[in-house]
């Protein structure tokens, strides 16, 4: 069977239940989604569990995909992220609303784009699950605090607090790493 040339054709064939089109869609996005989910779960076993659920949802809900609202990749990523969050919640990782008064952290942290991706991954994994999830959603996925609040069921300000704490921790770890690197 000739593989679809564009996303619309791929979606159409997947909706018809064509197995090869479904596999093509899976192959096209699984690597990116694996890395996305991995940033939330931080272990391959949980990542595969999340991806199993997420891609099942993708195929089941594919008919609701609206190309006018975004790309297929972004739509699939959103499903993977929400599935990962649900997975974390089942592991008793709660995203509690935080008092906005605590929002006093200086927000001047930026990740060096030239930093090795493995190092960044290591830093992200060092965060606690709540801070890591919000850091991923805001910094990497590019969601707004409002969107993050909707996904996690917390306020946008709480999302900002979590993110500030995450950045503070990351800065501390990076500074510590640089200090060690210079010492060595």
């Amino acid at each position: 069977m000739k593989l679809p040339r564009n996303t619309e054709e791929l979606v159409a064939k997947c909706l018809k239940g064509q197995a090869k089109a479904q596999r093509a869609l899976y192959d096209k996005y699984i690597n990116a989604m694996y890395n996305t989910v991995m940033r939330y779960t931080c272990n391959s076993h949980d990542t595969e569990d999340v991806l199993q659920i997420a891609f099942s949802k993708v195929f089941r809900k594919l008919k609701t995909f609206d190309p006018g609202k975004g790309t297929l990749k972004a739509w699939i990523r959103r499903i993977c992220v929400t599935t990962a969050i649900d997975f974390l919640r089942k592991r008793s990782i709660q995203f509690a609303s935080l008092d906005s008064v605590q929002l006093t952290v200086r927000d001047d942290f930026r990740i060096d784009q030239h930093m090795e991706i493995e190092y960044i991954m290591e830093y992200i994994e060092s965060l606690n699950p709540q801070q890591r999830a919000i850091f991923n959603m805001y910094v990497i996925e590019g969601y707004s605090h409002g969107e993050i609040g909707d996904i996690l069921g917390i306020g946008a300000d709480s999302s900002r607090v979590y993110l500030s704490r995450a950045k503070k921790n990351l800065r501390r770890k990076i500074d510590h790493f640089r200090l060690q690197y210079k010492t060595i």
Partner: peptide
């Protein structure tokens, strides 16, 4: 770019 890097990791 960061997301792109992660996706291609």
């Amino acid at each position: 770019d960061l997301q792109h890097k992660f996706d291609n990791r």
